Computed example of a mutant assay.
Amino acid sequence: MLTLRLYMLQRITALLMAPLVLGHLAVMIYAIQGGVSAAEILGRTQGSLAWFLFYGTFVIAVSVHGAIGLRTVAHEWGGLKGPVLEGFMWGFGLILLILGGRAVWAVTFATGVNA
């Protein structure tokens, strides 16, 4: 039953990520073709709840999706099972969430050079 739930959760996160990836790519293409600098990008994203929610949702979906996918790889190729496999999945997902969350915070709300 757990495997079915994880399978469905991975598919749901994939459906959620698809439009977010397209939106991210559209923003990146616009920024590159428009010659927008990193400072200009940060000027537009700092203090923006909309960008925080967009990229925050993206990070959560990627963290869940990636952790479940890596769990499958660790089980099939690495032979991990039981609590070790579950701990690996949760640990990897948490690392992705922390790193992605820090990046989103830095781009949307943190201020200063060392943010």
Rank of each mutant, 00 (worst) to 15 (best):
residue 48 S to V: 04
residue 22 L to C: 08
residue 72 T to Y: 14
residue 68 I to R: 01
residue 103 A to M: 11
residue 47 G to Y: 10
residue 29 I to T: 10
residue 93 G to H: 03
residue 26 A to T: 09
residue 23 G to K: 09
residue 76 E to C: 04
residue 104 V to T: 05
residue 77 W to R: 15
residue 42 L to F: 15
residue 38 A to P: 11
residue 73 V to T: 12
residue 104 V to K: 03
residue 100 G to W: 02
residue 25 L to D: 07
residue 112 G to L: 02
residue 54 F to V: 06
residue 25 L to G: 09
residue 104 V to S: 02
residue 26 A to S: 12
residue 93 G to K: 01
residue 92 F to E: 06
residue 46 Q to F: 11
residue 38 A to D: 13
residue 112 G to K: 04
residue 112 G to E: 03
residue 71 R to L: 04
residue 92 F to Q: 07
residue 105 W to L: 12
residue 28 M to H: 08
residue 35 G to F: 08
residue 50 A to E: 11
residue 49 L to D: 08
residue 76 E to T: 11
residue 86 E to A: 05
residue 59 V to F: 02
residue 26 A to G: 12
residue 55 Y to H: 15
residue 84 V to H: 07
residue 44 R to E: 14
residue 76 E to W: 15
residue 102 R to Y: 13
residue 105 W to C: 01
residue 27 V to Y: 09
residue 107 V to F: 13
residue 41 I to R: 12
residue 102 R to C: 03
residue 34 G to K: 07
residue 54 F to I: 05
residue 79 G to E: 02
residue 96 L to S: 05
residue 68 I to N: 03
residue 55 Y to G: 09
residue 91 G to C: 05
residue 83 P to H: 09
residue 98 I to G: 02
residue 29 I to R: 10
residue 36 V to T: 14
residue 103 A to G: 03
residue 69 G to M: 07
residue 66 G to Y: 11
residue 80 L to G: 04
residue 51 W to R: 00
residue 34 G to V: 07
residue 112 G to W: 01
residue 91 G to N: 01
residue 78 G to L: 04
residue 81 K to R: 15
residue 89 M to F: 02
residue 44 R to Y: 13
residue 60 I to N: 06
residue 98 I to L: 12
residue 98 I to K: 02
residue 69 G to T: 08
residue 47 G to P: 06
residue 25 L to P: 05
residue 72 T to S: 10
residue 92 F to N: 06
residue 112 G to R: 00
residue 48 S to R: 07
residue 56 G to N: 03
residue 92 F to V: 13
residue 95 I to A: 14
residue 35 G to S: 07
residue 97 L to E: 02
residue 99 L to P: 00
residue 61 A to F: 04
residue 75 H to T: 06
residue 37 S to L: 06
residue 31 A to C: 08
residue 86 E to D: 13
residue 63 S to I: 04
residue 72 T to M: 11
residue 81 K to H: 12
residue 58 F to T: 03
residue 65 H to N: 05
residue 56 G to C: 04
residue 63 S to V: 04
residue 72 T to Q: 12
residue 57 T to P: 00
residue 85 L to A: 04
residue 47 G to M: 08
residue 82 G to Q: 01
residue 75 H to F: 13
residue 44 R to A: 14
residue 69 G to W: 06
residue 40 E to V: 14
residue 75 H to K: 14
residue 41 I to V: 15
residue 75 H to R: 15
residue 35 G to W: 07
residue 96 L to N: 10
residue 40 E to D: 15
residue 60 I to L: 15
residue 85 L to Q: 01
residue 58 F to C: 01
residue 28 M to Q: 08
residue 41 I to D: 06
residue 46 Q to L: 14
residue 84 V to L: 13
residue 82 G to Y: 00
residue 68 I to K: 04
residue 47 G to I: 10
residue 98 I to Q: 04
residue 43 G to Y: 13
residue 46 Q to E: 14
residue 107 V to Q: 12
residue 29 I to D: 07
residue 62 V to G: 00
residue 23 G to C: 08
residue 70 L to A: 11
